[in-house]
Design a protein around this nucleic acid. Structure first.
Length: 200
DNA sequence: AGTAGGATAATCT
DNA sequence: GATTATCCTACTG
């Protein structure tokens, strides 16, 4: 059975997110198998989304057709990669949070430094660092021949292995279980929500 | 083991 | 000027 990514990504972000687990992401000579993702909707309804307050220069690609890369820079030092989902005109995307390096191990190690192999792409910013993804990937098409490519899983993923829970690091909307990961994978990020800058 | 705090700059109000 | 879809270091027990 083959996953048609074009069809999958044109659906709602949570459905697309589940389907992206197990897919292979290739860039910079490194390939990872995705083990953790998060879904984000658009204007209204999802306060955690970058597109919640409408279209801006940064999130413009989220309003375009599915299959394109939404890359953003945050905390003054980190890049994160999303795949745009849904129909053109409505913003939604899936944040690629973590994966297992299955090819190009030396290149990933060179970019990430001396860390355990399972930590090479364990977290959205670490994943981008391991693959060498930055602003240059913004708006590129992921289902073709671009610098960053996404391919269906080599083996189909057992739906029973997919776990859902609250998203990480967001300020609100914790009642929406739109973080998906594969049970038992050591590469899934273990961060909880802590140090939330409380201003009394 | 677990968590608290700082780094650091683009983006938006 | 405040905020941030994070990561790393250092400290506590």
């Amino acid at each position: 059975m083959t996953t048609d990514l074009g069809v999958l990504l044109s659906g709602p972000p949570d459905v697309a997110g589940r389907g992206l687990l197990g897919c292979r992401l290739h860039a910079g000579g490194v390939t990872v198998r995705l083990t953790e993702v998060e879904a984000y909707a658009g204007t209204g309804g999802d306060p955690a989304s970058h597109a919640h307050r409408g279209r801006t220069p940064r999130n413009a690609v989220m309003f375009g057709p599915p299959g394109y890369a939404y890359v953003y820079f945050t905390y003054g030092m980190h890049w994160c990669l999303n795949v745009v989902t849904g129909v053109e005109g409505v913003a939604s995307a899936v944040l690629l949070r973590a994966g297992e390096v299955v090819d190009g191990l030396p290149a990933a190690r060179a970019r990430r430094g001396p860390v355990a192999d399972r930590d090479l792409a364990r977290g959205p910013a670490r994943l981008c660092q391991a693959l060498g993804i930055d602003r240059a990937a913004y708006g590129t098409y992921l289902l073709g021949d671009g610098p960053v490519t996404l391919r269906p899983p080599a083996e189909s993923v057992d739906p029973a292995r997919i776990v859902a829970g609250p998203r990480v690091g967001v300020t609100g909307a914790h009642d929406l279980p739109w973080r998906f990961w594969l049970a038992g994978e050591p590469t899934v990020s273990a961060y909880r929500r802590h140090a939330p800058r409380r201003r009394f």
